[in-house]
Design a protein around this nucleic acid. Sequence first.
DNA 1: AATGCTTTATACT
DNA 2: AGTATAAAGCATT
Length: 276
Amino acid sequence: MSLSSDYSRIESAIRYIEQNFQQQPSLGEIAGNSGLSPFHFQRLFKRWAGISPKRFLQFLTVEYAKGLLQESRDLLDTAYQAGLSGPGRLHDLFVTIEAVTPAEFKRNGAGLRIRYGFHDSPFGECLLSVTERGICGLSFCPGERKEALADLRDRWSGAGLIEDAMATRSFAQKIFEPGRQKVPLFLKGTNFQIKVWEALLRIPSGQVCCYEDLAQAVGQASASRAVGTAVGSNPVAFLVPCHRVIRKSGIVGNYRWGAARKKAMLVWEAALSAEK
DNA sequence: AATGCTTTATACT
DNA sequence: AGTATAAAGCATT
């Protein structure tokens, strides 16, 4: 049983909890709703995130999220000060990042060859696209593959697209490994967007920050709303961890590929870092 | 001019 | 307590 086939069940459990959190559903009720016995429910979580259902539920509460927010209050600053990841130093982390030049930006990737493929992941099927210079796209396609592809074509209207799952597979396998080696990223965005995305990379796995903190980190404390839209236009899901930004109130907030998926990612990472 | 992965304040249920 | 509504604020289309 693969992680990706577990995901749809995980997501439906999250959905159920979202909708019924007011009446405090029991483990049995949640299990029943996903068509599983409590026993299999237990196995499912162990397999997918390595935690018990009970821990899983705890990670999903607003209280827990608030605690995390508190913890990482000045996390962006400290990471920055430690010299771990200033603008030129991101390479020490788990990705390298390269932005398109202004001229390239205008040409929308003209002359560029992009290879793409669909792969399974712990968060459902995803569309991965790469150039010689790095990964330029990662998105999830819960419904139509077509939509994900149209979006890719849209963002790189000048580039040639080649379906080549063989080429993208090796990347796809690396991406969701806990202690993965670094992968190259190739990003296209406005100055503001690139700045915001770089700031996202400073949030460690298992931690979160709010939009306001992020705004402060890019030097525009009152631009939390604009930061939100920039975060939302992140082209490389998961690797650029836009899912680690939540509302100040502890509410997880919106996500391009569904709030349930965002929560799933946060729980998954929380479980990972709690292991140690 | 309108929109959005926000935030804060204010008013209701 | 939780939930609507309004307004402020700012990059992007």
